[in-house]
């Protein structure tokens, strides 16, 4: 008998659903073993049919999201938080910085592109006060972060969930898959902003660019740093950052960069704090990050006003 898979999308971009299609010919092999009973991007299924595996992408942003994930939990045996939004809140998680009233005020009352300044009171699900990852609302059985996760890891996770065979998923960081060479370059200056570096074979950290590869879990095979784009941490924190309560992105990146380049740790930390909305963009709504020594995270990343 074929295993049944049901999927649902919440507050996200649907990119994770598209990533399932990126399995290409593996999808055909998969079709021999599984039957998709609910896929919003492909099928017009309004209910929540019983299934063995439930795949949920997106964070909880509105009342609809909360109800949908509860229906999913009730109708499937194994629930997978699929993609960074479901696991950590993702970019939607930036809503964690503001209450829903100020989000409405910013977008509808004062938004320059909203001519009538009318609020959508009817016909749209009510926003919740904040944004939370789905495991804050229901019990989740498997977490597959990634923005989106690489098809290799999607196939490996499904293999593991279908019959428990196949390798466990990687515990490495993005650095481990990057071909750039990490070596010491004392005297390098800190380079701020969305910049790349001249040497294509040398690690971006060694060239003064803050790349988050060393603090990010590998669910992607490091495409960005190898093409000269600094890692933004879209797969969420690496396992040692999740495990150790006192370890945070800032400290690890500052330590590594200062060893490689001689830039002072304080400079790197100050830069990360000033640009916290970028460096914490994918994971700030998760207690795995905001319960760390990141007590001022809301002030670094928020509107910049202090309350006292």
């Amino acid at each position: 008998m074929k295993a049944k898979i049901s999927t649902e999308w919440l507050s996200g971009c649907s990119g994770c659903h598209v990533a399932i299609v990126d399995l290409h010919e593996k999808l055909l092999n998969l079709a021999d073993e599984v039957e998709f009973v609910r896929v919003p991007v492909l099928m017009d299924e309004k209910g929540y049919p019983e299934a063995d595996i439930g795949i949920v992408e997106g964070a909880i942003r509105s009342v609809h999201d909360r109800e949908a994930v509860e229906h999913m939990r009730d109708s499937v045996r194994t629930l997978v938080a699929f993609g960074t939004c479901a696991v950590y809140g993702g970019p939607s998680g930036i809503g964690w910085l503001h209450d829903s009233e100020s989000v409405f005020a910013q977008v509808y009352d004062g938004g320059p592109t909203n001519a009538g300044h009318e609020r959508p009171d009817a016909g749209a699900p009510r926003l919740e006060e904040s944004v939370v990852p789905i495991d804050e609302v229901v019990e989740v059985d498997f977490l597959l972060p990634g923005c989106p996760p690489s098809p290799y890891f999607i196939a490996a996770a499904l293999r593991l969930l279908l019959d428990g065979s196949g390798p466990k998923l990687s515990k490495r960081t993005v650095c481990s898959g990057c071909t750039r060479k990490m070596s010491r370059r004392p005297g390098t200056a800190l380079r701020k902003g969305a910049v790349t570096a001249a040497d294509e074979r040398l690690c971006l950290l060694s060239q003064g660019v803050v790349c988050m590869g060393s603090v990010t879990l590998d669910r992607c095979f490091s495409p960005c740093p190898q093409k000269g784009v600094a890692c933004t941490g879209c797969n969420g924190p690496s396992l040692n950052i999740i495990r150790e309560p006192q370890v945070d992105y800032r400290g690890v990146l500052a330590g590594t960069m200062s060893f490689l380049t001689g830039i002072s740790e304080a400079d790197v930390k100050a830069y990360i704090e000033a640009e916290a909305k970028t460096f914490y963009a994918y994971s700030l709504a998760s207690p795995a990050i905001y319960k760390k020594p990141t007590v001022e995270l809301r002030e670094w990343a928020g509107d910049g006003h202090r309350h006292d």
């Binding site: 059985d141 498997f142 309560p245 795995a288």
Partner: peptide
Amino acid sequence: YYDLHSLDMLSKMTGD
């Protein structure tokens, strides 16, 4: 001393 929620995430992330 650890955060139990974070520890719980680890095995769910690797299947190990």
